[in-house]
Structures are given as C-alpha cells and as structure tokens.
Design a protein around this nucleic acid. Structure first.
Lengths: 190, 190
DNA sequence: CGCGACGTTGATTTGCCTCAACGATTGTGG
DNA sequence: CCACAATCGTTGAGGCAAATCAACGTCGCG
C-alpha cells in the first residue's frame, strides 16, 4: 500500500478498500538519484509518475540548445509527458530528477482496466487533468499579461521556498527568461 | 437528438442509445449573433458549450486595457472558462461569439449524475481535457521556444484558412503580439 | 588542487512595442 | 442614396526592455 498516493486520491474521490488494492497492484515504486533520467527524446512515454519525495522536471532542448522547462513535479503530484503518452508518439523531452526522488509508476496500459473496474479512479484522473489544464491556461495568461519582472515576482510569491530549492537557471528556464536577467532582478529587489 | 455532438463523442468512446438520450435530455441548444456574450467578468461559468456552428473566443482584458485571447472555440469543440467553472469562482473573462453561432449548453450541474449513469461520458470528458491540456502545453512550448515570427508562421500553417476567418488583431491577441507587428510580418513575407 | 556547476556583473545589440497618422471597407441612419 | 462613423489594416519614427556576448567570482567535489 502506498499511503501518500491513496491519501492524495481520497482528497478528490472516495475509494473502496477493494479499489485501493486493485490500484496498488498496478503501481511500482522506484527510486532515482539526482539527475536520474526517466524519459529521453525519441522514447515514448508510457507511464504516469507520482512524486512521493523529491522533485522532477520535464524539459526539452530547442534548436538553439537552450533548455526549456515545461513542468516541475513536486511531492504529491503527477508528472509525465502527456503529449507523448496520449498520442503514443516519441517524446522530445527529458524527464529528470532534480533531487534524489522516490516515485510511483502507474503504467498507461493498466489504466483501461482500472477505470473499468473502479470508475472513481477515472473521476480522479479527470479532475487531475482539469486542474493541470487550468494551471497551464493561467500560465499562458501570465506570460501574455505580465512583464518579466511581475512574472518572476508572482512565481516567487506563489511558491515560496521553491526558489531556494532548485538552481536559479531552472526558474529562469521555466519562466522563459535568462539567468542573467533573474540575477539582475534579485540584485534590484534587495 | 444532436447529431454533431453525438458523432463527436463517438469518435472517442462508444455510447449506448440509452446514454445518448440521457445526455440529450440535459443539453440545450442556443443561438448567438455576432458579438453575442455568454459570460462576463464577475459571473461564474456554470456550463460547457459545444460549438455546432460558428466561432467563439474566450478572452480577458488586462490592466493596460489590452484584450488577450485565451482560447478560440471552433466547430465540434468545447469552450468555457474552466478556471471559473472548476473552482466555482467569478470569471475574469468574456466568452463571445466572433461569428453568428449555434451552440449546445451542457450545464455543470448535470455532470455528476451523467457520469454516474454513463461512465463512458466521464471517459469522454477526461479525454477531451487531456487533449486541450496537451495543446496548452504545446502553446507554452511555442511561446518560449520560438520567435514571434516563427510563432505566427507556425500558427498560420497549423490552421490554414483560420487567418482569413477572424480579424487579424484577434490572431495577434492570441499569439501575444501586436497587430502592427503581424501587419509588418505579412508585408515582409509577400 | 583543479575542474565543473552556478551565479554575478558590465557593455552592447536588437526585436518588438508604442505612439501616431493615414487608408480602405463596411454599416447605418437621416 | 449619400454622409458619417466605426472597424480594421497599414506604414513610419522613435524608444526601451530584455537578450546576447563575454569575463569574472565562488562554491562544492572528485
């Protein structure tokens, strides 16, 4: 049994004991050290990873050889390359551990049967997807609506402490600006 | 019965005749003339709109009084303010018809019972949300990865004909650049 | 120690915005 | 049917915010 995962699910839907077992039968725990890689460009993403401990990032490298972070994965959240997973196409992303991490893998191929037998789980994943979709929409709004400076400030205030936890160049990469720019901003603020 | 909607659903899941009726009982058709408004800032979005004919846009106005289009809604697609709808909070967006449009309204409050009685419908909406989520992710990648020029070009090639269909300033607003810039781009291209 | 990873700072460049004025087209009311 | 306004696109001039290029500082680690 995986209490972190089950507790997270039970925040959103109720789950019978039988369904809990069913789910846990399909889940595999896995550990990853810093900079460990779960997915590389060219490979197809076939699973969903629940972060029990640690921190992940999903990023790609563009033709100017710049890294761009699409998404961070913190404790009690899911991370994978949905684009690759949903359309069964080769990913162009890396999925990498920023810190030593403990994850739970739920393979895509287990989902149809799981959803069939435990519709609550389909509800749960529908809700998860809605939440991250809304977050993505907001992020788009942020990019268009705010200046780079406002963007950095609101990110910091929205995730206090996170800035301390990961290198600054990753924050820059997530917000779509340069490390130098953030450095200057920080100097200006203090 | 609403064939456009049912056909769209059947692209993704199979639906028993009983479920079709059940769904259609909760659906209301509605017409909208050009510039007609379905949602305004301050109001809570309580429904999902399926576009049978026409074109919608979801946009907000920032503090510099600029419009920013979050999403277009074309034929055979859903549009609403998920953020408002999911979190039951007042929207800060307008949902407006760009062309005279025919829509189908499926109220949020009908969903729990529908999903309970027809799990296939929950599957369908889970898949819909996944698709738009992936699209939003890609859009974020576009914004960070490409120059404004590349962004415009790839938008045009991805949605050929759409540029003819809506005013250019709306394309600009969707892509996060100025109408003047697009105008100059078009001049340069030809 | 020496190397790599990360952050800082300075000088320069540039892509896009802003402001402003000017057409072209469409729609509308007298 | 015409005058007028509203809507939308184009073009020019100027400015600025952030990127780029480059060098240096510092910390941690094999």
């Amino acid at each position: 049994m995986y209490p972190e995962l089950l507790n997270h699910i039970k925040r959103y839907v109720s789950l019978a004991a039988r369904d809990e077992e069913l789910l846990c039968d399909h889940v595999q725990p896995l550990g990853l050290k810093k900079k460990g890689i779960l997915l590389e460009p060219g490979k197809i993403c076939t699973g969903n990873y629940f972060v029990v401990k640690g921190c992940m990032r999903l990023y790609f490298i563009n033709n100017k050889l710049n890294e761009h972070i699409i998404q961070f994965g913190l404790e009690n959240w899911w991370i994978n390359d949905q684009d690759s997973s949903l359309h069964k196409k080769p990913s162009n992303c890396y999925l990498q551990a920023i810190e030593p991490s403990e994850l739970l893998l739920l393979p895509d191929k287990a989902l149809p049967a799981l959803f069939q037998q435990a519709p609550q789980l389909e509800s749960y994943f529908r809700i998860m997807t809605q939440i991250v979709y809304v977050a993505a929409q907001r992020r788009i709004g942020f990019v268009f609506n705010q200046t780079e400076e406002e963007r950095y400030r609101s990110f910091v205030s929205q995730f206090p402490g996170f800035v301390q936890r990961v290198p600054q160049y990753m924050i820059a990469s997530y917000l779509g600006l340069t490390p130098q720019y953030i450095s200057r901003l920080r100097a200006k603020i203090s």
